[in-house]
Measured scan of single mutants.
Amino acid sequence: IEKFKLLAEKVEEIVAKNARAEIDYSDAPDEFRDPLMDTLMTDPVRLPSGTVMDRSIILRHLLNSPTDPFNRQMLTESMLEPVPELKEQIQAWMREKQSSDH
């Protein structure tokens, strides 16, 4: 029984630690959010139409349809242009958020 109590305490400790580690990014500025999924972008790319999306989301879309989801023009992965300035701004915002939450 004592071992179970210790195990339960350890589990509670881990759960509390994980809860502290989770950071809420739901208040991200609109320009940091993917327009299709409304999630925080981690690897922004510009489509030929000028729309900026997260790379993982547009690549997932391209698996089903080789088109720009906003104007239905033909689109391939090679046409995606990285946006390193925005990526750095997002990373800086995330770092600031992490340091203010801890």
Score class of each variant (00 low, 15 high):
Lys17Gln: 12
Asp27Tyr: 07
Ser99Leu: 07
Glu2Ala: 06
Lys17Trp: 07
Glu77Arg: 08
Ile90Val: 13
Trp93Gln: 05
Ala92Leu: 06
Leu80Ile: 04
Arg20Glu: 11
Trp93Gly: 01
Asp43Gln: 01
Thr39Tyr: 03
Val11Ile: 05
Phe70Ile: 01
Thr39Ser: 06
Asn71Asp: 02
Glu96Val: 11
Leu36Ala: 01
Ala19Arg: 14
Met37Ile: 04
Gln98Arg: 15
Ala8Ile: 04
Thr39Pro: 00
Asp38Asn: 03
Asp38Val: 15
Asp38Tyr: 15
Asp30Lys: 15
Lys17Ser: 04
Pro35Ala: 01
Pro66His: 08
Thr39Ile: 07
Lys17Arg: 11
His102Leu: 10
Asp43Thr: 02
Lys3His: 11
Glu22Asp: 08
Lys10Asp: 08
Glu13His: 05
Thr42Val: 05
Arg20Ser: 14
Tyr25Cys: 12
Ser26Asn: 14
Pro35Val: 08
Ala92Gly: 11
Lys97Gly: 15
Gln73Met: 12
Ile57Leu: 04
Glu85Lys: 13
Ser78Thr: 07
Lys97Asp: 12
Ala8Gly: 12
Leu47Val: 15
Ala8Glu: 13
Ser65Tyr: 05
Asp38Ile: 12
Asp24Asn: 06
Leu59Pro: 01
Glu13Arg: 04
Leu86Ile: 08
Leu40Pro: 04
Glu77Thr: 07
Glu22Val: 09
Glu96Pro: 03
Thr39Asn: 07
Asn71Thr: 15
Asp30Asn: 07
Ser78Val: 02
Ile14Thr: 08
Leu63Pro: 03
Arg60Trp: 00
Arg72Phe: 06
Pro84Ala: 13
Thr39Asp: 14
Arg20Gly: 10
Thr76Asp: 06
Pro66Cys: 06
Arg95Thr: 13
Arg72Leu: 01
Met94Gly: 13
Lys5Thr: 07
Tyr25Asn: 14
Pro48Ala: 02
Leu59Val: 07
Asp24Ala: 07
Asp30Glu: 12
Glu88Gln: 09
Met74Val: 08
Gly50Arg: 08
Glu31Gln: 10
Leu59Gln: 09
Glu9Ala: 15
Gln91Arg: 12
Lys17Tyr: 06
Asp27Ser: 13
Ala28Thr: 14
Ser49Phe: 15
Tyr25Val: 01
Glu9Tyr: 15
Asp101Asn: 09
Val11Ala: 11
Ser56Tyr: 04
Pro66Gln: 08
Val15Ala: 11
Arg72Asn: 00
Arg55Leu: 02
Val45Met: 03
Phe32Ser: 00
Thr76Val: 07
Thr67Val: 00
Asp101Tyr: 06
Lys3Glu: 06
Ile58Asn: 01
Ile1Arg: 09
Glu81Met: 06
Asn18Met: 06
Val15Gly: 08
Lys97Arg: 14
Ala92Arg: 03
Leu75Val: 02
Pro66Ser: 08
Arg20Pro: 12
Ala16Pro: 08
His61Asp: 00
Ala21Asp: 14
Leu6Gly: 12
Leu75Met: 04
Lys17Leu: 10
Phe32Val: 01
Thr76Ala: 05
Gln98Tyr: 06
Val83Gly: 00
Ala8Pro: 10
Ser100Cys: 11
Ile90Leu: 06
Ser26His: 12
Leu36Ser: 02
Ser100Val: 13
Phe32Tyr: 10
Thr39Phe: 12
Ile57Phe: 14
Ile1Leu: 06
Arg20Gln: 14
Asp43Asn: 08
Lys5Pro: 08
Gln91His: 10
Met37Phe: 00
Asp38Ala: 05
Thr42Ile: 11
Met79Thr: 03
Glu13Tyr: 15
Thr67Cys: 05
Asp68Glu: 01
Met74Gln: 07
Ala28Pro: 09
Lys97Leu: 03
Leu40Met: 09
Tyr25His: 08
Ala21Glu: 13
Ala16Glu: 11
Phe4Tyr: 08
Leu59Met: 15
Leu36Glu: 04
Ser100Asp: 15
Leu63Arg: 10
Gln89Leu: 08
Leu86Val: 04
Arg72Asp: 02
Asp38Glu: 03
Ile14Val: 10
Val11Trp: 05
Ala28Ser: 13
Asp24His: 08
Glu2Val: 07
Met74Arg: 10
Met94Thr: 14
Arg55Ser: 03
Lys5Ala: 14
Glu2Asp: 14
Asp101Pro: 09
Glu96Lys: 13
Pro82Ala: 11
Ser100Tyr: 06
Leu80Ala: 06
Gln89Glu: 06
Glu31Ala: 10
Glu77Lys: 06
Met41Lys: 00
Glu88Ala: 14
Ala28Val: 13
Ile14Ser: 09
Leu6Met: 11
Ile14Asn: 12
Leu62Pro: 00
Asp43Ser: 02
Asp24Val: 06
Leu47His: 00
Ala92Ser: 15
Asn18Arg: 15
Lys3Arg: 06
Met94Lys: 10
Val83Arg: 03
Arg20Trp: 14
Leu63Ile: 12
His61Lys: 04
Phe4Ser: 10
Arg95Gln: 11
Asp34Asn: 00
Pro66Ala: 11
Thr39Val: 02
Gln91Thr: 12
Val11Met: 11
Gln73Glu: 04
Thr76Ser: 08
Lys97Gln: 13
Thr67Leu: 01
Lys10Ala: 08
Arg60Cys: 01
Ile23Asn: 10
Leu7Ile: 09
Gln98Glu: 14
Gly50Asn: 01
Glu22Gly: 05
Pro82Gln: 06
